Every structure is written in C-alpha cells, then in structure tokens.
Computed example of a mutant assay.
Amino acid sequence: MELFTTAEYETDVYNFTDELIPDTTDYGSESSGLCNKEYVRQFSKSYEPPLYWIIFVVGALGNLLVVCIFTTVRNRLKTMTDVYLLNLAVADLLFLCTLPFWSTNAAQGWVFSQIICQGVSSVYKINFFASMLLLTCISVDRYIAIVHVTEAHNYKNKRMLYSKITCVFVWVASCLLALPDFIFAKVKTFEFQPNSCVLMYSISDKNRTKILVFALQICVGFLLPLLVIVICYSVIIRKLMQARSFEKHKALRVIFAVVAAFVLSQLPFNGYLIIEAAQANNATITDCDVMQSLDMAGQIVKCLAYTHCCLNPILYAFIGVRFRKDLLSLIHRLSCGLGLVDNCKLQPVPKRPSIMSDTDITPVFSL
C-alpha cells in the first residue's frame, strides 16, 4: 500500500474519479484549493453497498440456474448459441463474485490486500470484454441460423467446433485486454481517510495511458459490438418481416428487447467514460459542484452497467419457452431428490430442439 499526502495528491485532484471504483474521499479542505468530496463519498457509502448486494443475489440466482440447466437437464450443448450462453453465464458469475469486495470498499474502504485489489479490478474488465464479445457472437450466430438456414444446417458440426474455438479466443482476448487494470490497480491510503482500491495511471505521460485504456474499452467493449449487433439484428428483422408467420411480431419484440437492454445498460457508462477521457486529455472542468455532480452520475451509470449480469439470463434464456420447460424439469428433479414430492418418478427429458433452434425461424426467440 502507498501512503498519499495532500500535497502529493494535488497534482491530479481535478481529474475525474477513477473509472472502476470512484475515489470520492475528501483529501483536503476548500482553503487548500482542493475540492471537498465528502458529500460524494457519503452518497457512495449509502447507495452502492445495498445495490451491489441486490445485483449479486439476483444475478447469482439467474446465472446459476442457467449453468445448472445446461449441465444437468440437457445431455449436451446442441448449438453455438448454447455454448456462448453457458460461457456468458460463467463470465457473469465470475464478475458477481467481486461485488461483495466492492460493496465493502464503498462502505468502509478497502480492507483487503493489494493482490486482491488487482484481481477483482481485472476480473471486472475480463467480464466486461467477455460479455460484450459473447453477446456479439450470439448475434452473429442468430444471423447465420436465420438468414442462412441451409448453410447453418449443412455445417452444424463444424460450427460447434468453431464456437468452442471462438470461446477460447474470447477468454484469452478478454484477459489480455484486462491487463492494464491488473497493472494499474493500487490500494491507496490517505491521511485520516479510509483505504481505497483504485486505478492509478501515470500522470507523467499527460494521461495518455488512461486515455488509451478508456478508448480501448469504449471501442472494443462497446462501439464495435454494438455495430455488429445492430447490423445482424437489422438483417434478422428484415428476414422475419418476410416470413409468413403470425408469431413473427413476438420474435421482433424479443430482438428489440435484446438490443435495447444492451444499449440502455452500457451506453450511459460509456458516454461517461468519453467525458472522463476528454477531461483527462484536457482538464477544462475545475468547478467543484460540477465535479461532484459528475462523480455521482458516474457512480449511478456504473451500477447501471453492472446490471447487465442480471439481464443476460432473462433476455437470452428465461424468455424462451424451451428454457422455461427445462427450468420446470430441473425444479421437478430437485423436488424429487429432496423428497418434497410423493410417488415421484423421474422421467427422461424428451428430445427436442435446443434453447434456440438452428433451423426454425419463429421459435428462435419464442416467448
């Protein structure tokens, strides 16, 4: 841990808060020229811990059910989307395990070691990049399955192999992209203030490193996936509109929900990062009230972005009719195993298409 005095911190006091866990403590008084952020710190202390725990409980329950269904109710993964969904649930569970640490950090400061600070900081970015890349893979797979039905059916076995290779690439790429967070995460200790786990970028290079890290997250983690998703789903919508099916409007509703959830949960936070990157490049905002308002806004949009690990099981699994049937089957099995059901006889799961059929257009996003 490093001990920072007020004088040492004056060099970057007007920078925005650190991107992962906002550094909102009061490092001085107004008379010393520093912005007093005690109100922001109290706001974070009262608001973030309960919200983190809600996200943790809801997200853990949903993603654990996804993993259990894929590993128990079903004999094997049948489509590329099944593979991506399982990896997506694992990525979300990995991130959810870090939320108790961040809840503790917001409530009472960082009480853990430096290596844990580096670990949980990098795990967040691993989840961020892995989730966005996997959601992009799902949209591409749905595009192939719906728009190029014949080719998708003819090369089904090869596509399964490609999906596993793609998942390995996604995990490796996410770990590499998260390296800056592992390197720059530090436990900072200030005089008369609680410790804090934050990202400490070098100010000797005029914040170029910080700007580069933000640009990487915004472009690779949001803008590029969003572009691919919008293109894929635009073509899918056009294809479904041409299909003669009374259920096509249900399919369109789910597609719009998928895109809307992606944008609504990630756009505000990435917009905030753009402002923060601009501030790091040219610190034009020095008004204390404005800085406090932006700090609190950053905390809110960050928590909103974290909710994606709760939305994914709902949007990509639980709205599917087949998944709900598998969920009921899992509940039935658990009830039988616990002896809660009399005269229980476990029935084999009937063979049926996967959660998202590769050859049937309408049930792909069935409600």
Rank of each mutant, 00 (worst) to 15 (best):
L64D: 01
Y9R: 11
V120C: 06
D360K: 14
G59H: 00
T189I: 11
E38K: 09
C68P: 01
Q114I: 07
P363Q: 07
S163A: 15
V364K: 10
L177K: 02
C97L: 14
P363A: 12
G28N: 01
A106K: 03
L338E: 07
Q118Y: 10
R244P: 01
L267F: 13
Q217K: 06
C97G: 11
L177R: 01
L304Y: 02
S44E: 10
V140P: 00
I126F: 08
L88F: 08
A257S: 14
T359W: 04
Y84H: 06
L227I: 13
V67I: 14
E191I: 15
K248C: 01
T284F: 12
L216V: 08
N87A: 05
C309Y: 04
L304C: 14
K186R: 13
I255Q: 01
C344H: 11
D23K: 10
A305E: 03
A130R: 10
N75W: 08
F16E: 00
T286G: 02
L65I: 15
S29W: 07
K158L: 12
V254W: 14
T307G: 02
I165E: 08
F182Y: 15
L252N: 09
C219K: 03
V235T: 08
K351R: 10
G221M: 05
I203V: 09
N282R: 13
D26W: 00
G109Q: 03
V321Q: 08
Y27L: 15
V259T: 09
V259I: 15
P350E: 00
I275W: 10
I203C: 02
E2R: 13
A89C: 06
S113M: 04
M80P: 06
N343P: 00
A60W: 14
V290E: 13
D82Y: 06
C117K: 09
I218L: 06
I229L: 07
T284L: 10
K156T: 06
D141F: 00
L99G: 01
M160R: 15
Q108M: 08
E19D: 11
I55H: 02
P313L: 05
Y162H: 15
N87W: 11
I236W: 03
F56E: 00
K325E: 06
R244I: 07
I116W: 14
G119S: 10
A7D: 14
A260E: 02
T307F: 09
N270I: 12
G271Q: 02
D12G: 13
K164W: 14
F269W: 15
M1D: 09
H249A: 06
A89L: 07
